[in-house]
Design a binder for these strands. Structure first.
Lengths: 235, 235
DNA sequence: ACACATTTGTCCGTATGTATC
DNA sequence: TGATACATACGGACAAATGTG
């Protein structure tokens, strides 16, 4: 792990520990503490800025963000850790509704940027946080990269399997968020009355190589979950 | 404007022009072309990466992202330009449903991180793209920073007014996305049948100073709009 | 399979600009 | 006004990944 990432991790831990109250030490303080260069410390802090954990004010310093409390659970999507990594204290379970291998058709190939006929895994899961149904995930994985999957893996964390077992290097993702009216079956799975809405995320996940390894559509339970992310103005 | 931002702007224009096909010139090419340092060019390209316009592959180069086409209009929220800046070709109109000054209560003060009684503008607008009702925006502005507003300004772009006339420096924002069932009135405003859902964004907007100048809740027309953003994996 | 060139990633140091306090 | 702290910009060295032959 590069130095700036391990710095970011360490500073993140200290923030969670309550080591700092509101204001972080200055860059120079960190430079001394960690025996690192200024730019390295800046890179580390920028990670935490991107993740919505802190913000910076020129001429003043770095400050810990207050977290706005919602009645619902809040999924910080910029963390890119999947449910399992996003709710560490809580019990994440997944009921595998379907797991199959199929051939990519025209439409999927367009999304995957692969040729028609490419073998894909299809996984449909009902996901729970502390036994509350939180989302219905329909995911396709390009078998060229995700060479193996089974029900046991899918019932735990596909994300960790891909990252830590298959050792794939996850790069970036395109996220499309929308809403829709759910059908009878979807409502039943999420324990919702008929005609209720769902919060939809369509995701295209890329490896660091730029290849797409996963395309998914997840219907989240709007009564239980909020999405959160922080945006830095680049104008 | 700093050099890396003007570089980013220039490269962005060239991408839109079709100057490059898929792969961008190398960093070194840009270093020569713009007489800039390597890190400056990297900073410029990183802006475009953040905005989901390009991606990079170590050892290989920078590549233009394919844009996935949706049937709906797509709002790239990481651009932080408001509707007016996000749909440049199209006609943005806003019908001001309410504009008033009020005193911050307990709940608003918690969100604004200000004391109870602080004067706030409240603006409720129905927003249109090419005469299609696209969203209902309920926004509060801290009068301490947004010292003036009127209906004429609100019917155009509050965002540009704040940035270009009031010269406030917009920093970052917290975004909370959810869905809900709309009530009769909300559906009527958005030309939806009763009982239809809405895509909700709750926003807290900060200045570069770290002060909150705006808190808003917008109900988007789920039939017309998708949200888009790109996420870089920082693990 | 291997070596090599290319290209991006990380890290350091330094100087100067700009905003805050 | 001066001191502090972050922002921008440049240059150089080496690491790591990719692509080629």
């Amino acid at each position: 792990m590069p130095k700036y990432k391990s710095l970011a991790k360490d500073i993140h831990e200290k923030i969670k520990n309550g080591t700092y109250s509101i204001k972080l030490p200055t860059i120079n303080d960190f430079v001394c503490e960690y025996q690192a260069g200024r730019n390295t410390v800046r890179s580390a802090l920028d990670i935490l800025v991107q993740q919505g954990e802190i913000h910076k004010v020129q001429g003043s310093g770095y400050y810990i963000n207050k977290n706005v409390n919602s009645e619902k659970k809040t999924l910080n999507i910029s963390l890119k850790r999947g449910l399992t990594g996003s709710f560490p204290g809580q019990q994440i379970k997944s009921k595998v509704l379907e797991l199959s291998i199929l051939s990519s058709d025209e439409k999927l190939s367009a999304r995957f940027n692969c040729s028609v006929g490419t073998p894909l895994y299809f996984v449909r899961r009902l996901r729970f946080i502390d036994d509350i149904p939180i989302g219905i995930e329909n995911a396709y994985y390009n078998k060229r990269f995700v060479i193996y999957l089974n029900e046991e893996i899918a019932s735990r964390s596909i994300f960790y399997f891909i990252r830590d077992e298959l050792m794939l290097k996850i790069g970036f993702s395109d996220e499309f968020v929308s809403a829709k009216c759910l059908d009878k079956n979807e409502c039943a799975l999420l324990n919702l009355d008929e005609g209720q809405p769902g919060l939809i995320i369509n995701e295209i996940n890329y490896l660091k190589s730029g290849d797409i390894f996963n395309v998914s559509n997840t219907i989240y339970n709007y009564q239980e979950l909020d999405l959160y992310f922080s945006i830095q103005n680049l104008n």
